[in-house]
Design a protein around this nucleic acid. Structure first.
Lengths: 349, 349
DNA sequence: CTGAAAGCGCTAACAC
DNA sequence: GTGTTAGCGCTTTCAG
């Protein structure tokens, strides 16, 4: 309870401000939207009136005429047909990967006054919800992060003519902008390091084969190792979760007891692999060197993990930048931005 | 210009649907909003017209008249004056705690057609942004999760008369609804377990003293131990991050080499503590039993962590429920919901 | 049970 | 430079 001035019913409107400043609504609108051609003294008066009334423009009204909301959908899209376990929501948001992407998006959007709306798309129903949401004009576009290779959402978005930008190249090509990492180059960084350290019997724990990024990391690694004169690299498949890294490491050591270096396709699995190595009594990096990928869980590993860093925040920010460009200009060219990974050397290799 | 087909410029509007169904806009609106008193055959015709045009109601227009958006702000509020390190965005969203809360919120909101808008408030400026956002009518209320005890945001919200619900009791009492956990009871669960296991020399690693929940967990633990005949419990303060758990454990062992049980105020620190114990050559739980709190990182610990589970998803859902109630009815009573923790026994104690 | 009409609060031509 | 005038697309009395 504080208002004493505008004694109309609800919140102050443009009308109230205009009346108090002794000008028209249009002029107030001009001042608020920073349009020039307004006499300094009038601007002054308007600003005073705004402050006096505590006026805040109504977003719906503005949106109705400008046809843009200051929002974008941040959608995490996945299978959702999860075999038991926790609900999709918890699994996905608890992943440090999502957290960093969200952080990068917010970091870019916030200074620009745009807000991300969190959405989950894990079924035909919820994918349609995303499309409807955008068609309703509830957001100006969508940033989509798919956890699965064959996600149908990107195509739905393209077909509906809605602005959208993807995290990572889609499994099958569609005309949509995306931001990705040079996975093969990153894997090569790991191979180079392992070889430079003197590792002779190197293996790898890959991500799930149906994820393009996992394939790229695997083939990029094998190729780089071949280039170093190691045509055969034992590999086991994981699912990017810690437990699979642990299991994978056990299997690798069992089948190839003499390996002295391993490239693990992400840090979460590397964390599990390190645990396994510890249980097996192998010292890292003395007995076996380990390199992860992502730089997402590296510091909480023991020993601290040498890893290939994926600049997730920068990539997410780039997605946001592209989306805003698409939203502002429907004719903006579809593009892909591929960012470079770097090797972060800690103690494990 | 205007043909008779829905070949107007942009997206189909109510008008288009009405014309095609041969009724008035009002009737279509009634059908869409599920208002009875519409003849079945007319409903039928309207639905057909909707399908034929691919009509989707415009959110801004609806919002303008109903004065409600289908959105709520999900704000993470903190100090932000962080000493170096990563930006607030990344730190906060990468925390599994945030992920689970977001998951719980989305799980509750999604079936109800409400969408959470992600916001960060870590400075006077950004706190005002949150208030403005709500005053603009961009969201119907705010769900706020403070990372700091003395967060000014809740009071700003209350003073502005905006619907809001907090995660956890605010440091100083203000008339606002919140959802919290019975931290003392949870700590007692840990104390009981440790004592029942036969631990005689028990210590604790607490959270930062300026966080009410940390204080409650500490005093609740001390009190419960006192009840078991252990009036003195060595304690060191951590900051809820893994590194502080590790450091705290080292300090504890150094100052009290004979302890055989420790209660760590959250799982992240417990993870660090476990690492320290491993380095020190102490077996868990044989030499020393460890109990964490939250059940957030418990499974990736080695050994799997016995911990006090905080039902974060349920708590977050409850926050959302309360917020919607407040938003729907301005006279809805301010309430607090305190949920019960449970002990999850794994291997560490 | 259905239609006509009046706005919700704002921006954007178009006048002056 | 500034005011006037139309709507943006929808819900909601109020008649009938």
């Amino acid at each position: 309870m504080s208002t004493d001035l505008p004694h109309t019913s609800g919140a102050p409107t443009l009308e109230d401000v205009a009346r108090l400043a002794g000008v028209s609504r249009a002029t107030v609108s001009r001042v608020i939207n920073g349009i020039r051609n307004v006499a300094p003294d009038i601007q002054e008066a308007v600003h005073r009136a705004i402050a006096a009334t505590g006026y805040v423009p109504n977003r719906a009204a503005r949106s109705l005429v400008t046809r843009r909301t200051g929002a974008v959908a941040l959608v995490v899209s996945g299978a959702g047909d999860a075999e038991g376990g926790e609900p999709f929501e918890s699994r996905v948001f608890a992943d440090p990967f999502f957290g960093r992407v969200a952080g990068g998006v917010v970091g870019y959007l916030r200074p620009r006054g745009i807000h991300p709306v969190l959405m989950l798309a894990d079924s035909a129903q919820t994918r349609d919800d995303v499309v409807s949401f955008l068609r309703q004009g509830s957001a100006d576009g969508a940033l989509v992060v798919s956890t699965h290779g064959e996600d149908p959402l990107p195509k739905l978005l393209v077909d509906a003519g809605l602005p959208a930008v993807l995290w990572a190249r889609p499994a099958r090509p569609i005309p949509i902008s995306y931001v990705d990492l040079a996975h093969r180059a990153g894997a090569a960084l790991a191979a180079d390091r392992l070889v430079a350290r003197g590792c002779r019997r190197v293996a790898t724990i890959s991500g799930p084969f149906d994820v393009p990024a996992a394939q790229d990391r695997l083939s990029g690694f094998q190729e780089a190792m071949a280039g170093h004169g190691h045509p055969y690299v034992p590999a086991v498949e994981g699912d990017f979760m810690p437990a699979s890294g642990e299991a994978g490491m056990h299997r690798l050591i069992k089948e190839h007891p003499d390996i002295d270096g391993v490239f693990v396709a992400n840090d979460l699995m590397a964390q599990g692999a390190l645990l396994a190595l510890r249980d097996l009594g192998r010292r890292v990096p003395e007995d076996i060197a380990v390199i992860g990928f992502d730089d997402s869980a590296a510091v909480t590993c023991r020993p601290p993990l040498t890893t290939v860093r994926q600049p997730m925040e920068d990539m997410a920010a780039e997605m946001a930048r592209l989306l805003l460009a698409h939203a502002a200009d429907p004719d903006f060219q579809v593009t892909s931005v591929i960012m470079r990974p770097t090797l972060v050397v800690r103690e494990s290799a």
